Simulated scan of single mutants.
Amino acid sequence: MEAQHLHGKPRAEGEWSTGFCDCFSDCGNCCITCWCPCITFGQVAEIVDQGSTTCGTAGALYTLISCITGCGCLYSCFYRGKMRAQYNIGGNDCGDCLKHFFCELCALTQQYRELKNRGYDMKLGWAGNAQLQQNQGVAMGAPVFQGGMTR
């Protein structure tokens, strides 16, 4: 099954769930993105790549590109296009690049909100969300105790 069907909420095709400038609707993420955009980008990239890229790896690469070129947006605008394609959201590559170049923070927070609104717990990452989806609806009993010391 594709991730969008696992976590997707009904949404009009071709639309983002929040506006581009709705940054302050999630003050926590807005602050994190303002001070350390590599964290928000890493979280978005891990979900968009369905776990093939970790948050840490994507965030580190974003930081490296930002330090070398001064434009982490060169990397992050690629993920906006990838995300639009996965969820059939309207737009184009030129618009993605312009949004990331002129307002990287708004673009990153919009992507973060979109994934969150589609049911992802961004703090869990891809593996945590997959595990959550697997356990959803399953009654969980008491934890199993493994006695003794193991290596």
Rank of each mutant, 00 (worst) to 15 (best):
A85F: 08
G119A: 04
T53M: 13
C71M: 15
T63N: 09
Q86Y: 07
N29T: 15
E114K: 06
C30T: 07
G56Y: 06
F24H: 14
K82N: 07
S25K: 15
R151G: 13
C106V: 04
E15K: 12
Y112A: 09
P37A: 04
G59P: 00
R80E: 14
Q50S: 15
Y87W: 15
F145Q: 11
M122P: 00
Q4G: 06
A142R: 10
F102S: 04
L105V: 09
Q134V: 10
Y62R: 05
I39M: 09
I39L: 13
Y120I: 02
S66P: 06
A45L: 01
D121W: 09
G14Y: 08
Q43N: 07
K123Y: 08
S76P: 00
G51S: 00
W126M: 02
T150L: 10
F41Y: 11
P37M: 03
Q136K: 14
K82F: 04
F20H: 08
P37G: 04
Q146N: 12
Y62K: 05
K9H: 14
K9Q: 14
A107P: 01
L132Q: 13
E13K: 15
Q110I: 04
R113F: 07
K9F: 12
F102R: 04
F101Y: 13
D96E: 05
Y112C: 05
Q146R: 11
Q136Y: 11
L115R: 01
M1W: 07
T69S: 03
